[in-house]
Design a protein around this nucleic acid. Structure first.
Lengths: 136, 136
DNA sequence: TCCTACGATAGACAGAGTCTAAGTCAAGAA
DNA sequence: TTCTTGACTTAGACTCTGTCTATCGTAGGA
């Protein structure tokens, strides 16, 4: 069983066929899929899996911190299974493709208290937007 | 006439009552509105303006670089008329409120060529996510 | 093996945004 | 000023993404 499934089971996650398939799709392919794409790939292995179940499961994985939601310019959110390593994203403004980057040079970003306007900051997201090689 | 309208006319933008009202709503209120909110405010001055026109006009303003689209965790994009001054965003994960920040300490972000995966980068977006004072 | 609470399902629903076909009108030409 | 024309606007249907609800199914403990 994969690391992800192992971790989920360890946290008391009830293991059903549907959840296993969704977790495997995310864990195995390591790309940034939309909910719909996750559903399509999961349905290839378990045809009766429903859209609602995929949404529920993705939502739980996000809550558990195993997966990150990435908002792109397009319509659908994409899900990034690489949540355990801080990284940034390259997003294609044309086709929505996402690539992870682990920049070597950039310092940690932080806002001084005086510039936070009272917000309790939980997370910083850095997104480079542009055109991917295919869309250039 | 406002700066924004002046610039648009200078670029050969055909000036209709609807476009004028949308531009004025964005230019005047300098907050981050959703398309629906823009429509509501525009309709207060020009009741017959349609939703499609507001979407079209916002889309054109984004294309022209006069307005920035900001994706929040929530459903609707918000439109930021402050496109001519580089800045970052504080986004409330709960209610979607956005504040502009002009951080003093952060260096310009850049990616070395070797980490660009062939992308032509046009823009870097930095978003701090957390809870606004009202939602804490 | 049986129970039961938790999870899955179908499908209706809602919100955001896009598209289309037909009508309207801004702005340049005469 | 009037005409012309192509760009703009409109209503409303449509698509896509995501959520909710009521009902059914089943994982896992007793």
């Amino acid at each position: 069983m994969s690391d992800l499934l192992e971790r989920l089971r360890g946290r008391g996650w009830r293991m059903t066929a549907q959840r296993r398939v969704v977790a495997e799709v995310l864990d195995g392919d390591h790309v940034h899929l939309t909910a719909d794409e996750v559903h399509a790939r999961a349905a290839a292995r378990l045809p009766e899996i429903s859209r609602a179940t995929v949404y529920n499961t993705l939502g739980e994985l996000v809550t558990l911190g195993e997966v990150i939601e990435v908002a792109t310019d397009g319509r659908a959110k994409r899900y990034d299974p690489n949540a355990h390593h801080a990284h940034q994203h390259l997003v294609c403004s044309n086709c929505g493709t996402i690539r992870d980057v682990h920049p070597s040079g950039n310092p940690m970003l932080d806002l001084p208290d005086g510039e936070r306007f009272g917000f309790a900051i939980a997370d910083v997201e850095v997104t480079y937007r542009g055109l991917c090689p295919d869309c250039r």
